[in-house]
Write a protein that binds this DNA or RNA. Structure first.
Lengths: 296, 296, 296, 296
DNA sequence: GATGAATGAGGGTTCATTCAT
DNA sequence: GATGAATGAACCCTCATTCAT
């Protein structure tokens, strides 16, 4: 009964371990199945392809790790400061358990095998960043408001750096205290100095964005992008009504792009509608289209 | 002669550009030569293999970038604080020029194709970190001494994070001011709070060390390592004198390892001599031997 | 200089020979390269895929064979009867030379690996049939007009059967005489009996039609078909003007299909335009769309 | 018992349907079981292998179709002409019911997966042809005798062509009348013109023969063939009496082959006896032996 | 008897590397 | 020195077949 789940998890664990050691592209399916101790063909009972295995594995490990982290981080009996500290502490504690997953994540470019992965990694970074922003605002109040992004990006960088430092065994309680102290130092300093912040909202959203719009996006690329989105939507399981509407928006988009003069209002509106579908798989293409359309 | 150099540089640039976009393993030689506009066979006139191309390209771009950075950073007319600021500023300014190189570096695991690359990346990180340590000590004096590593690792993390944030165009003067201010905030806070530092020298040396000594290094492994080094040195193009001396050191090392009681002084001395040859290819084996010998 | 052409021809010959012996799907690339005496990878220098190799090989052999057949068949110094006889004779004479190609063609279903192949085989059959129709009309005059299709399909069947009868060595002059005599017998009999013919124009067009419109074509299929055509046209090398226009027609088609009531006039017009592009690759989809649209 | 039969028939029907659509090699067991709505393993309860499934399915469908065709065709109350007409008509009427089977047969090469299949398809063609020969002789009398093979091969070609023309719905009564009329035209013409016929008995036997005896059959091959037949008979489920007799015949055959002078009478007799066992599996070997023995 | 997860040989394809021109 | 056709190892993936349940 549980055999299926177990085997899938077995493959995921083996894959994550291999990806951590050699990266996605340098890892062969053979190495994964050898690690898992199963036959080559079995992988394809559970995953459509090597790419799919990567995506499912990353997503699954992320969810597994986050479920623990968030349960602690969202404890409503804690003050915001205690909550952030709790989150730090928990994350540091599970670092070892998820060391392979974390090591796998270090190879951004290598993991971006398709738009789905790009969108997922992007979402991960953004969610991470936003949580820091919220925490900082809650802890330090309105005085810190202008510096939320500046502080968040620093703390994100530091935490990432420490979790990526493999094999170093640091005591998590002390390290948590250290992070909180440094955050205090930073925010206090920022508020005291009252200088212009480095990052505004928009810039911060590009933070560590592994799929920020491709500036070399061409006319042909945009046509392909529309096409690709159309295909995705058509085969999606959206309500018929929404699907039809979305396809209409796409047609409009197509017309706009083909025109000599792109109307930014219409284009933005259409893209906005499509973004609101919440389909991570097409997000990157929408971003690219948006960037292309607004810079013609 | 110059034509040769030009072509080599052309290939390196094309390779770095491709590696930046897709990673090392996902980039084919064909893509590189297409980008460079040359024939496939030509790559092998200048580089032994794809791995060699990666190594030479990374090293070359690193040297090129560093020559600029260091020339500014080592300006003796500046105070230590001004020097660090100058280094920040310069690094931020050249970020765009070296964006492909920087993007290539983001994929640590993907780049570690052999011991040579591992050793080189490790050295890069260490040199970086040590420069920050020295700067901090020089700027903040003895009060900061206990916190040098803590501060250095944070500032390293932050700078790396910002340089890796691609395409975000921030004004370098402001950003430099920002980095310096944050460093002030952090070091001031650390000194004021007078808490126990997080990192000691040893731990800091493992910082972001992608090829720290393999702790599972066995007796057999160490024998193999010595043998492997011996082979490498024999076929190397070192001066005869130096080569002979090095092989003698190796013989001593071999004896030590085989003994029941390894003499740390002798062992360290031999390894130190061998490290001073500057042969990146044997560095990792030397590190592993060192770790093994000192932990018996 | 000719090496490239030679090698391509070598691969084609080997492939056709293998396909003739075992069929397309049962033939591995390894067998083909063993037959050709080259390395596996070389196939992919000349052909995109095994499917592409099949298509190019069939098309190439067909053209090669037809160039000879047609040059004889179109000799304007001959009477229609002599022309048909000349065509028979020539075809029988080259049967041996092209025996592998002819044997390959016996496996209709096995060869229909994609729409391109389906369309090509269909076109082959149709061209064949039409040539017989024209010849019969030219030889026997208006009296034979009602029976053109009936006679043509019989003679086509017989010729095909004899060319497919491998290993039987029949004298081509006698066989040609035989074919002409039998055709005389048949047409004379038909005219004499003055019965209703079996085939009308429409039915005859379905003769051995391996890709007549798929009657189970669904709404989703039609959307996919439009999509597929759009992709094909976009990546085609049509003039920009024509491409743009074609894409507009497609958009209109898309709208029509999505509507509750499909307008047959508009739909037919759009499909007609697209058919006139002469792109064999999209022909089958257009046929399917036409059939679907007109039967809603 | 009946459930078993039903399931076997279910698998056969599903298999034939799939083979018709995509051919044997391009059809996977998975597709067949999906079509049948059963589990993958079940196929192997009823069939030894995919090849066996093909063979049994083809044979089964052929028998099923022929039982109907023959029951009509052998009606002794009809004149020979009425009998042939009845056979035509019946065949045309069941064309739809057996359309998948007929479509499957179109791919001769694809179906020839082993000697068993080759022999079976060959036998099918021969039986077909011989029935036409007999019918023609019975209808047109001795005048037609020289032209029996010529007429039969034409009518076989035409009927095959029409049955292979899928989806064309022609009225079977009219088509039967058409076939009979055309046969009249052809035979009348042949008798009237009194020319030398194209095919003699021997040539006609090669008609569409997909597995005529292997002319390169060697002495060693013939020994192997006898051995192979012996093994097959030993493990067969023949009556003990028949089995013993058959093995004796084989021993005689063995002796003959080993002799310097093979006695054609004895050899032919032995082979004839063995052929009469009706074991398709050994037929091809018997044919090869016969060919070898009679050409020494 | 029925099932479908597991197996691994073998398929098509890619690509680093070589070498004759 | 420059070229790119040729090579074949190794990749990802499919699928006929087996077997424990």
């Amino acid at each position: 009964m549980c055999a299926l789940k177990d085997k899938k998890q077995l493959i995921i664990s083996a894959a994550i371990k291999c990806f951590a050691q050699k990266g996605f592209h340098a890892t062969s399916i053979q190495e994964i199945v050898d690690t898992a101790g199963i036959a080559k063909g079995s992988v394809y009972s559970y995953f459509k392809s090597k790419e799919d295995l990567l995506f499912v594995a990353i997503k699954h490990e992320y969810d597994r790790m986050m479920s623990g982290v968030l349960s602690v981080a969202n404890d409503i009996n804690l003050t915001p400061r205690e909550r952030l500290a709790a989150q730090f502490q928990h994350m540091l504690q599970v670092t070892l358990e998820y060391s392979d997953f974390i090591a796998t994540l270090k190879n951004e470019t290598d993991l971006m095998v398709n738009d789905q992965m790009k969108a997922f990694l992007n979402d991960m970074h953004k969610a991470d960043f936003q949580w820091y922003c919220q925490s900082i605002l809650a802890i330090y109040g309105d005085d810190a408001k202008p510096y939320v992004f500046d502080a968040a990006i620093i703390i994100q960088a530091v935490v990432k750096h420490f979790t990526y430092m493999d094999r170093v065994q640091l005591e998590s309680t002390e390290l948590t205290r250290f992070f909180m102290d440094r955050l205090d130092d930073l925010v206090d300093g920022m508020i005291r100095k009252q200088q212009k912040p480095i990052l505004n909202k928009e810039q911060s959203e590009n933070n560590a964005n592994p799929c920020s719009p491709d500036t070399s996006f061409s006319y042909e690329d945009s046509l392909k992008a529309v096409q690709s989105i159309r295909v995705y939507i058509k085969q999606s399981k959206l309500e018929t009504k929404i699907k039809t509407a979305s396809l209409s928006y796409l047609t409009v988009l197509d017309h706009e792009i083909t025109k000599d003069q792109i109307d930014p209002i219409i284009t933005t509106a259409m893209i906005s509608h499509l973004k609101s579908l919440g389909l991570a798989e097409i997000l990157i293409n929408l971003n690219n289209l948006e960037h292309y359309a607004l810079n013609q």
